[in-house]
């Protein structure tokens, strides 16, 4: 499948601070990409660079094969965007806001906007500043969906939302868009939001992408291992890809990526009294990768 968005060597410096370093990735149509990272790791910066809101320091971006520069605007007709803080002209009424957006997008899907909007059930004449945060987000989604985008960029939109909104509305719309061929770039620090929707996961840490894998691969290749020893446990394990290690008397607990049979064989060759291997949740995997250290080795 051809690349929808190809990013090569993207970097962003804020003065001396290097927020993004040499990011390269590609997005394909119809897939949901999770960009996980703690607060301050550059997710918003990345989204804003993609949307032409701020300039990149270095790097090349291709959207549908066409290069994007800071001044480009036409390519944005194919991208929907929900910013981190959903501030959309508080003084505007809901209907005005949708009409305002509709004039920017030649492919505006009025019928879909109407049907999505009706399902939400809030007043078209209400001023945006009177809406709750969840309603503002929903309105932003309606506008983004109306643009019939090839790519939807979500910049950590879910914090502060109630559970039904997150679960039903957000996941529903994301899956619906993906099924229609829209690629979704979902940047968040809330790991569990991604678990049921994501196809591919990137982890952003220390300004770099330290993980770039399909979500199924990640689930298959990541394990928590508990090793019990008769006596003192060793200081380290003879394995590549030990993301974290917890040591107690007679016990070692490690998160390992990638996990495979060879790894298990190596561990069993140690003088163990017991070994427990269990799959990980996405949250465990994320913690395993970013842990408490500021910079982990890049894993690809």
């Amino acid at each position: 499948m051809s690349d929808l968005l190809k990013v090569t060597g993207l970097a962003k410096d804020f003065g001396r601070k290097k927020v993004l370093r040499d990011l390269s990735f590609t997005l394909e149509p119809g897939r949901v990409y999770g960009f996980l990272g703690r607060n301050g790791e550059g997710k918003t910066t990345l989204a804003r660079i993609l949307m032409g809101v701020i300039p990149a320091t270095r790097g090349a971006l291709l959207f549908k094969g066409e290069p994007i520069t800071y001044g480009s605007s036409i390519y944005k007709r194919g991208i929907g965007y929900i910013p981190e803080d959903s501030f959309f002209y508080g003084g505007m009424r809901v209907a005005e806001f949708l009409a305002f957006n509709s004039r920017f997008y030649p492919r505006w899907d009025a019928a879909r906007v109407r049907s999505t909007f009706e399902s939400l059930g809030f007043d078209r004449r209400a001023r945006i500043q009177t809406l709750s945060r969840g309603q503002k987000l929903q309105l932003g989604f309606v506008a983004a969906v109306g643009a019939a985008p090839d790519l939807l960029v979500l910049d950590d939109p879910t914090s502060g939302l109630d559970v039904p909104t997150r679960r039903d509305f957000l996941r529903g719309i994301i899956r619906d868009l993906a099924e229609r061929g829209t690629a979704v770039l979902f940047a968040t620090h809330m790991v569990h939001e991604l678990e049921r929707v994501v196809d591919h996961l990137y982890i952003l840490h220390g300004g770099r992408l330290i993980l770039d894998r399909g979500f199924e691969d990640i689930k298959t290749l990541s394990r928590r291992v508990r090793l019990r020893f008769d006596g003192e446990a060793p200081d380290k394990l003879p394995l590549e890809g030990v993301l974290s290690l917890r040591r107690e008397p007679g016990l070692l607990e490690a998160i390992v990526f990638p996990w495979d049979e060879a790894a298990e064989s190596k561990l069993r060759s140690l003088s163990l009294t017991d070994i427990e291997v269990e799959p990980l949740s996405l949250e465990d995997i994320f913690e395993g990768f970013v842990g408490s250290s500021p910079a982990q080795p890049e894993v690809k």
Binding site: G52, G71, I79, Y81, F87
Partner: peptide, 21 residues
Amino acid sequence: SSEFKDGSWAYLFSRPIRKSA
């Protein structure tokens, strides 16, 4: 001032319109 005070500048800049426009 309204865009830069309430943060909607980022939203406006992400619309498909040139900054000069």
